[in-house]
């Protein structure tokens, strides 16, 4: 019996000492290892996105298991994402990173880890093959002649479908696509100040006080209308007399290409100076091919202005 306890004691002692050493080593090395991992990831990202200056880990978004880390250039502008994902190949998961510009085009591809057949599928590690993907977008169709290797189609196809998923799920907000800045209305005159909290809210419309040194000079109104494909968010400024100062569409999900930006800008300018008495005129005010959308916005503007008259009464601006 005594012997058994002796054995147990020795083994336990070794186990405890081992565990202690491991815990200590782990504690000591955890930070440097994390730093190295971060540094490596950043340099890998930089390789994929040469134009980028900074990658903000905090703003990472995970969409269908793909990690998107936004990339910023020197002036702090968001210029794209580096996406990390995995796709099953011939010999297991293929881990890849792909840089995607704001225009949806690939800026670089890197295979991080894969266990494809040496000499066949593992040619996806070749730099020359990875470079082929630069400039392609989600519309690109896999070309067997060009993109596959003799005897190895599964591995490159897997990378292709992984990339395609990454491109399709890219978390781009619509206003980034349209490139209209939300704050542009207020940018025009610096001394104007928009209240942080809305004073009134009717339906979708929120009314914010605009004031300068002399007090309130009008309202900034943000609202949305239901268009042909979904919501259209727009902003307008209305002065004390009830006349529209500016109107701007900030977000829209309408059929792309139907309305070009110049036409939209012209259309927005037409609204300047109009008030509650203005009647929507289909021939003048509808943009060709987008009648439903323009009408929806016009209707919402009319609603907003009608309610605005009540506010004017309350404030004694009549």
């Amino acid at each position: 019996m005594g012997r058994i306890f002796h054995y147990a004691f020795v083994l336990t002692l070794i186990a405890v000492i081992s565990a202690g050493i491991l815990a200590y080593a782990d504690k000591k090395t955890a930070e440097p290892i994390e730093n190295i991992t971060k540094k490596l990831e950043n340099s890998a990202r930089k390789e994929l996105f040469p134009d980028a200056e900074k990658f903000v880990e905090k703003e990472k978004k995970i969409i269908s298991k793909i990690e998107y880390v936004p990339a910023y250039n020197k002036s702090g502008e968001k210029i794209g994402f580096v996406a990390k994902g995995s796709e099953n190949g011939y010999g297991g998961a293929i881990l890849f990173m792909v840089g995607i510009g704001m225009d949806g085009k690939i800026t670089g591809l890197k295979i991080i880890d894969a266990k494809e057949t040496p000499g066949l599928g593992d040619k996806i590690f070749l730099e020359s093959w990875q470079k082929k993907w630069i400039g392609r977008d989600s519309k690109y169709e896999f070309n067997k002649k060009e993109d596959a290797f003799a005897g190895a189609t599964i591995s490159p196809t897997a990378v292709y479908s992984g990339i395609k998923k990454a491109l399709k799920n890219m978390p781009v907000e619509k206003k980034e696509k349209l490139n209209i800045e939300t704050s542009s209305i207020t940018k025009e005159s610096i001394d104007k100040k928009i209240a942080e909290k809305e004073s009134y809210k009717f339906g979708n419309a929120s009314y914010f006080d605009i004031s300068n040194n002399n007090g309130v000079i009008g309202f900034f109104i943000k609202s949305e209308a239901k268009g042909y494909n979904g919501k259209i968010v727009f902003e307008m400024e209305v002065d004390k007399a009830g006349k529209i100062n500016t109107l701007k569409i900030t977000e829209n999900s309408e059929t792309a290409g139907k309305v070009d930006e110049k036409e939209l800008e012209k259309w927005q300018k037409n609204w300047v100076g109009r008030d509650v008495n203005y009647k929507f005129d289909e021939t003048n005010d509808a943009i060709a091919g987008a009648t439903v959308t323009t009408k929806a916005v016009a209707d919402e503007v009319k609603n907003i202005l009608t309610k605005y008259e009540e506010i004017r009464k309350k404030r004694g601006w009549e």
């Binding site: 054995y7 020795v10 083994l11 070794i14 050493i21 491991l22 080593a25 440097p32 290892i33």
Partner: peptide
């Protein structure tokens, strides 16, 4: 009688520590 498990534990600990230290430094 318990030398084999003792050695295995020792070696596994050793390798793990070597792995972590090399990774870090």
């Amino acid at each position: 009688k318990i030398r084999i498990p003792a050695y295995v534990m020792l070696i596994a600990t050793l390798v793990t520590v070597v792995d972590m230290v090399m990774h870090a430094y």
